[in-house]
């Protein structure tokens, strides 16, 4: 009895030691990448700006004030006013909220659905796999923006519907990626051994496939956040996003683009810089996470 207990504790210690080691390697790889740490800091600052900014900088974003339209920056309106007379700085905060919420939600939804579709397709194989993958192929061959616009013209857009619509296109390549990983994982010795013990299928997927796909999935999901923000901006530019007074960075930019020949720079460049900075930071973060995942894999 005592021997088994000491045995267990030693095993435990070894296990936790190993895990701490892997995490530490991951953290070290990440921190060594100055660009990635910088991106993380920038992202945190942008999130604070959008979500806490309105508590410090109070503006009226609900009603249009046509007497105040297109005013240049002044002490009352630090970044001037929009074509509808709303304060631009406050508007950037509000637009950033929906943009960031959408990016994160799409990343999460697309990854979850892609993970389920990909693991099932790859693990079950055969006819089911062919059918599931042909569906993905067919949807992927419709250029995503056409598909999104078609869906957005059928439903009346709210933020949640747009999240669903963009996720509906975004999960496709994730499913393909996860399927590929699953195909290579399911022929590994430990999975075959576990299957030989009579482990049920769902447990094989949940315990042996999914945890090993997670690294790649997180990298992919991060890049999906960047793509989703770009797609949302494109929809905002095309006038197919959430109706006012709600807004997003793409729609703010669109306002600036329409007035581009009048020289209203404050309507264009601040939104442009925010959007590029955010997407750039997320992309750099995704690349850094890929290095971390690869470092972890080479550790094994």
């Amino acid at each position: 009895m005592t021997t088994t207990q000491t045995d267990r504790t030693t095993v435990d210690v070894v296990e936790t030691d190993h895990r701490v080691g892997a995490l530490r390697v991951a953290l070290r790889t990440f921190v060594a990448n100055k660009l990635a740490v910088g991106s993380l800091v920038i992202l945190i600052l942008i999130i604070l700006f959008c979500f806490l900014g309105p508590f410090v900088y109070h503006t009226n974003q609900t009603s249009a004030q046509l007497l105040l339209e297109n005013q240049p920056p002044s002490p009352q309106h630090i970044l001037g006013t929009s074509p509808a007379g709303r304060d631009e700085l406050g508007r950037l905060m509000l637009g950033g909220q929906s943009t960031i919420e959408l990016g994160l939600a799409v990343g999460l939804l697309a990854s979850t659905f892609g993970l389920i579709w990909g693991t099932v397709s790859g693990f079950v194989g055969g006819f089911v796999d062919s059918v599931m993958m042909r569906i993905v192929d067919a949807l992927l061959s419709i250029p995503f923006l056409f598909f999104v616009i078609l869906l957005a013209s059928i439903v009346r857009p709210t933020l949640w519907l747009i999240i669903l619509v963009i996720s509906g296109v975004s999960w496709l390549s994730t499913a393909r990626l996860v399927r590929g990983e699953t195909l290579s994982l399911k022929t590994r010795d430990y999975v075959i051994a576990a299957a030989g013990f009579g482990t049920p299928r769902w447990r094989l997927i949940a315990r042996h496939i999914v945890p090993n796909v997670l690294g790649v999935l997180v990298v992919n999901g991060t890049l999906k956040v960047a793509d989703a923000i770009l797609t949302f901006a494109a929809l905002g530019y095309l006038g197919l996003s959430i109706p006012p007074p709600a807004t997003n960075w793409g729609e703010i930019l669109a306002g600036g683009v329409n007035n581009i020949f009048d020289g209203y720079w404050w309507q264009l460049w601040p939104a442009a810089v925010l959007i590029v900075l955010t997407v750039l930071a997320v992309n750099v973060l995704g690349d850094a996470l890929r290095d971390v995942v690869e470092a972890r894999l080479s550790q094994r």
Partner: peptide
């Protein structure tokens, strides 16, 4: 290239309009 990759396509077009047209 990474900056261009992180730009919405229409913004890229707008930057080009500003530089090569205005």
């Amino acid at each position: 290239m990474l900056i261009m990759y992180s730009m919405p396509t229409f913004l890229l077009g707008v930057v080009l309009i500003v530089v090569l047209n205005i």
